[in-house]
Design a binder for these strands. Structure first.
Length: 420
DNA sequence: TCTGGGGTCCTAGGACCC
DNA sequence: TCTGGGGTCCTAGGACCC
C-alpha cells in the first residue's frame, strides 16, 4: 500500500500557524509580484475565488469579503515544508517528497495494520507538531492514493483519512470520481475524454486499453492500470539530479534599460550556479531569454531567446555569467518595455564527467575553489553576501511584494519583532 | 495600473549512421 | 512506372504536475 499526505491549503495554512487570527477568515496567497491567486483558504474557495485568477480581477471581492491577502513567502513555506517532511519520516520506512506540500509514504509490509487508524494518527501527529492541517489517502497505487486523498479532503466526516483497500471500494470510489480530477488528466485530456462520454474514473477504466494507448499514449495506459490497482509508477525515495534548471522572474515594473536587465540575468545565473553546485553537476548549455509584457496589447511586443553551448561544461557562476551576458547582448533590442528575463540551463552532466578541452585556458581548479569559498561564506552570512559584480546592488528588477509576512522561522530580526 | 515560477515525460520528424 | 532496410540521436512541441 501507498499513502499520500497532502497539506491542506498549504501556503494559507503556513500563514495561519504564525498568525492565528487568520483562522476562520477568508485568506489568499498571491504568486510572485503579487500577480495571481495561488493558494486559497476554504472560505475563499467557498465564495468562488478561482485558482490562478489575477489579483486585480478580484479587487471587489477582496473589499466586499474583507479577504486577507498575502504575498508569497517561500522562505517561510519552504521551512514549514521541511518540518512536515521531518515529522512524516517516522511513519514509513521510505518516503518520496513529491512537492513542497505532498509526500508519498511506502506502506509495504503494513498489511496487518489498521491503515485507517494509522492514517488518523499521522494526521494528529503532523497537526500537533507543525500546526499544518493535512489529508491522507491510502491505496494500492499512487494514482489511487491520489483519489483517496481527494475523498479524504472533500468530506469532513472522513477526518482527513481515506483508505481504498479492496476492489469493491475502489469501484465505488472511481464511479463517483470526476475524470478531470484524475492525476495525469489535465485540461486537454479532460476535454477530450468528456467529448467521448467518459465522465468518471470508472468510465475511463472501462475503455479498451488499445483505445487509451492510441489517444493518450503510454501515459494514459499507465493511469488506466493504476486506477485498477496495478502499480505502474514507483515510489522514488532518492531524488535524481535535475536535468534542467530554470530561474526567471517578472520584473516589478517594466524595464527599458539594458543595465538593469543585465543585473537581473546575472542574479538568475547566480541562482542556477548554486543549484548546479548543490547537486554536483555542470552544464554544457545555457539559454538566456527575455520578453515584453504579453498582456499589454497596446505596446510593441518582443520575445527572444538564445542558447549558448559552452566549450567545457561548468558550474562556475563567474564563467556562466560571462556567457550569459554575451548572449543577452545578442538578443537585447533597444526600445522595448521588458517584463521578464531568465536563464535555463540544460545538458546537465555530473561534475566528475566533464570532458576537458585541449585548448581551454580557464584555470578550473581555481574556479572551483572560488565557488566553494563563495558558497561557504554565503551559506553562513546570507545569500549574495559575496557576489559577482554584474549582479549589482540596485535591484531595480526586483519583485513587488506588498503584503509579505515575516520570515517567522528563519530570520532572527523577524522573530524578535514578533516577541515585541 | 495590475496577469507566477519551476519542473517532467512522450512523440514525431529530421538528420545522420551502416 | 520503377530506387532498401535497419538503426540512433536530437529537438521542438505538447501534454502533464505542483
Amino acid at each position: 500500500m501507498i499513502g499520500l499526505v497532502d497539506c491542506n491549503n498549504f501556503y494559507v495554512s503556513c500563514e495561519r500557524v504564525f498568525n492565528p487570527s487568520l483562522i476562520g477568515k477568508t485568506v489568499v496567497v498571491l504568486s510572485n509580484n503579487d500577480g495571481c491567486v495561488i493558494a486559497r483558504s476554504n472560505e475563499a474557495k467557498a465564495i468562488g475565488i478561482k485558482m490562478g485568477v489575477p489579483a486585480f480581477e478580484i479587487k471587489k471581492e477582496i473589499e466586499k469579503y474583507q479577504i486577507k491577502v498575502f504575498s508569497s513567502n517561500y522562505t517561510l513555506y519552504g521551512d514549514m515544508s521541511q518540518r512536515v517532511m521531518a515529522s512524516l519520516n517516522q511513519f514509513a520506512p521510505e518516503i518520496e517528497i513529491y512537492s513542497i506540500d505532498e509526500v508519498f509514504l511506502d506502506f509495504k509490509g503494513f498489511e496487518y495494520f489498521d491503515l485507517y487508524e494509522y492514517g488518523k494518527q499521522i494526521v494528529k501527529t503532523i497537526t500537533k507538531n507543525t500546526g499544518i492541517p493535512i489529508s491522507t489517502g491510502i491505496a494500492q497505487t499512487k494514482t489511487l492514493a491520489k483519489v483517496a486523498n481527494k475523498i479524504a479532503k472533500k468530506n469532513p466526516a472522513n477526518k482527513g483519512v481515506f483508505v481504498l483497500s479492496n476492489g469493491q471500494n475502489i469501484l465505488q470510489a472511481t464511479k463517483q470520481f470526476p475524470v478531470e480530477d484524475i492525476w495525469g488528466v489535465g485540461r486537454r485530456y479532460a476535454e477530450f475524454l468528456k467529448k467521448n462520454n467518459i465522465n468518471t474514473a470508472y468510465d475511463f477504466t472501462r475503455m479498451p486499453k488499445t483505445w487509451v494507448q492510441k489517444h493518450l499514449t503510454v501515459v494514459g495506459v499507465r493511469m488506466w492500470n493504476e486506477l485498477q490497482g496495478n502499480p505502474q509508477i514507483e515510489l522514488k525515495s532518492v531524488i535524481p539530479p535535475k536535468k534542467s534548471i530554470c530561474n526567471s522572474q517578472s520584473f516589478g515594473n517594466m524595464l527599458t534599460e539594458y543595465t538593469f536587465i543585465e543585473e537581473a540575468i546575472a542574479n538568475h545565473v547566480a541562482r542556477c550556479g548554486e543549484e548546479l553546485r548543490k547537486q554536483n553537476s555542470c552544464t554544457k548549455a545555457l539559454m538566456v531569454f527575455l520578453h515584453t509584457n504579453q498582456h499589454r496589447k497596446d505596446l510593441p511586443q518582443y520575445a527572444k531567446n538564445i542558447v549558448i553551448n559552452l566549450p567545457v561544461a561548468s558550474n562556475s557562476t563567474i564563467e556562466l555569467t560571462h556567457y550569459a551576458i554575451k548572449g543577452l547582448k545578442q538578443i537585447f533590442e533597444k526600445g522595448y518595455y521588458y517584463k521578464k528575463a531568465g536563464i535555463i540551463v540544460s545538458k546537465i552532466i555530473p561534475e566528475n564527467a566533464v570532458q576537458q578541452d585541449l585548448f581551454d585556458h580557464t584555470d578550473r581548479n581555481k574556479q572551483t575553489a572560488i565557488m566553494q569559498a563563495l558558497d561557504k561564506i554565503n551559506s553562513q552570512y546570507g545569500r549574495d553576501k559575496v557576489r559577482i559584480a554584474a549582479q549589482g546592488f540596485d535591484r531595480k528588477w526586483k519583485l513587488r511584494q506588498e503584503q509579505l509576512s515575516p520570515c517567522y522561522t528563519t530570520r532572527l530580526s523577524d522573530i524578535l519583532t514578533i516577541r515585541v
